[in-house]
Amino acid sequence: MTGNPNGPVLSIRNVRRSFGTHAALDGVSLDVEQGEVVAVIGPSGSGKSTLVRCVHQLEPIDSGAMYLDGELLGYEHHAGRLRPLPARRVADQRRRMGMVFQQFQLFGHWTVLRNITEAQVRVHGRSREQARERAMELLGKVGLAEKADAHPGQLSGGQQQRVAIARALATRPRIMLLDEPTSALDPELVDEVLTVIRDLAAAGMTMIIVTHEIAFAREVADRYVFMDRGRVVEQGPVAGVLGDGTSDRLRAFLSRYTQQLSDSGEARTSV
């Protein structure tokens, strides 16, 4: 099951994914070590969402391979060849990863509490009591214990995203994948979500965060990965962002980005 305990939590090897003739991922490789926070940045359409969706097996990959704790994702060896895993096993692999979506995707017909307990009960086989305890602990962590019985529609965007993070954490994932977790939020609600993510990073959670919050990425991430046109154009320790070694493309991206933000009067993301 588990490979080398000192190996990376997540290993992505030369993954390709095309939509028609368009290569959304054009040979991406990336290792994420235990406790590491990787910020993925890049222009819109560069394949960032496709990458996290492929890792979570919400999107099939055309070639390459991905490993979670050394275990091949989505496929098994059988009679000397690879074949896709049955749906149950894929579901098992998925719940070892937590996913946070740009549009929150809380389940509107359930209360906040049920959003967090249901997968624990149905998928993990925990009792309602255990699940509830864990949910309340997580809601406390994201500062929303008093909203347990509210419906998602009654919460602000920032609160919904915090609940979504608590929900993703409920099954104790090995790694969290966050796809632009603050992009759908009003500016004044961004910080409450970033605070929660900052706490997670401080607690040692392994994470991939797709984000346009460059300042935040510099602060919490250990490493940045810059994607463009389906490729990892460059990566390095965040301290190096905009340092000497950065490519023209990244430099252009960052300057365009900070330009845009200062044009719209945002001080938050000044680099």
Binding site: L58, R94, R95, M99, F101, Q105, L106, A119, R167
Partner: peptide
């Protein structure tokens, strides 16, 4: 996205 979110949780 709702189906994706449910699948992502291991359903």
């Amino acid at each position: 996205g709702q189906r994706d979110a449910a699948m992502a949780m291991g359903f």
